[in-house]
Amino acid sequence: MKILVLSSLYPNAAQPRHGIFIEHRVAHLARPGDEIRVVAPVPWFPSAHPLFGRYADFGRAPQAATRRGLAISHPRYPVLPKIGMAAAPWLMAAALYPHVAKLRQTFDFDAIDSYYLYPDGVAAGLLARMFGRPFLMSALGTDVSLIPQHRAERRMILAAIARAAAVTTVCGALRDELLALGAAADKVRVVEHGVDLALFRPPANREALRRTLGLDGPAVLSVGHLIDRKGHDLVIRAVAALPGVTLMIAGDGPRDAALRALAAALGVAERVRFLGHVDQARLPDLYGAADVAVNGADREGIANVLLEALACGTPLVATPIWGSPEVVRVPEAGLLSADRSAGAIGAAIARLLAALPERAATRRYAERYDWRETGRLHRALLADAVSARE
């Protein structure tokens, strides 16, 4: 097969952390004889000057690149903040049409494989109709839990699902929500994410690693962008009620100063370590050194940090939202908090620290989340779509 992947979340040199999980998924998709090209559109922005903050990343993104052996192009498309939300798929499809038409002269793709329902999946549906090809859509999280709250966007998503060959979701909770919104049950399949089991693995010498990091007591790790919905504030409040527990926070973002101020106000600044952005290659050491990884988010499909921690042998405390209960469902995976509050998260951390599972058992459980199986299941849906067209 010749597969055209479309996703504005695909990582690039200016946004290396952007949708790494999509890159992993696509990297495990191809079988011998398959060809893949990635079209990863980037919002148009006129300047790459650091003065413009994260918007400058759009200006710095390359026009084309090769990552993990795949050719990737980054055509620009117009974005109208707030007022242009309902027009976003049309603007994306119109901007991509000439680029895809030119690409098709040398790469006559069999199907379009899109990631994130809106605007990417809806735009993929428009392009698939223009080029007479089947398309898949993949739902990842907020494209189901948040965007369909808007009536126009919900109608477009459901119309695209009706035309798609298939739709995948990364967890059963997202599938259930799509069905509740009106999607046909026979269109939606659960294909879970995987984890890089070679990169994320238990440390060879955990005690030596903990000494290097200066950890001599219970340690908790919270990973993610420093924004409100990730719940780092709840984790700080939870740890404040647990004497002797150290909290490591890996991530950067706009709530950095506020979170530091919170730790100081609660009198636990010396027990909360703000590590800033941590490259993916360094994360396994942090997971491996921690006794518990905590995810206090308010909405996720299946968060990468859950699977990464488990692969390193570290059990979880997670809030009972969306896909998290589908991961934290056996004792060796950890515990779900009773609700999304600092008290409930703290109680779950305390319970887990008092009876930690064997780290080897946690790792064995994580091995079911293999990217190779994810790729196999996803490719089978693409093959069915191409066969149905023939």
Rank of each mutant, 00 (worst) to 15 (best):
V220D: 04
A241D: 11
H193C: 11
L178T: 02
R210G: 13
A258W: 05
R211N: 13
D216A: 11
A183P: 10
L234S: 00
K230R: 12
R206S: 08
R211M: 03
L179W: 09
A198K: 15
H225M: 01
L242V: 06
L242A: 01
R229W: 08
V167F: 11
D216H: 14
G253C: 11
A208E: 15
L266Y: 09
L178V: 07
V170T: 05
G251I: 14
D186P: 09
F200R: 10
G251H: 14
S222D: 09
D228S: 03
G214I: 13
R255S: 14
A183Q: 03
C171W: 01
A166M: 04
A173H: 10
V235L: 01
D176Y: 02
L178A: 03
V191N: 08
D256Q: 15
A261D: 15
R175W: 06
P254T: 09
L247Q: 07
L179C: 03
E177L: 07
G172D: 13
A184L: 05
R175P: 08
A165D: 08
V191I: 15
G194D: 06
G172L: 12
L179Q: 01
S222W: 00
R163N: 08
V167C: 07
R175G: 04
A263M: 05
A238T: 02
R210T: 01
K187P: 06
D228A: 05
V223K: 01
A241R: 13
L226G: 00
V191P: 12
E207I: 13
V195P: 13
A173E: 07
A265W: 07
V190H: 05
D186K: 10
C171H: 03
G231S: 01
A263L: 07
T169N: 06
V170G: 03
V195L: 08
P202W: 13
T169Q: 04
A208H: 12
A241W: 03
L242P: 08
G194T: 06
A165Q: 08
A184Y: 01
L259T: 10
D176H: 10
G267E: 03
T168D: 02
V235A: 00
L247V: 11
E192G: 10
T246G: 08
D176N: 10
P218N: 01
D176F: 04
V223T: 03
V188G: 04
L242Q: 05
A208Y: 10
D228Q: 05
L221Q: 00
I161C: 07
G172R: 12
A240C: 11
A265D: 15
R255H: 13
R237D: 00
A219W: 01
L234I: 03
V195R: 09
A264R: 14
L266W: 07
V170S: 05
R175M: 04
P243T: 02
V170N: 10
K230S: 05
L215Y: 07
P202Y: 09
A257I: 15
E192S: 14
L259K: 09
A238W: 01
K230N: 09
R201K: 15
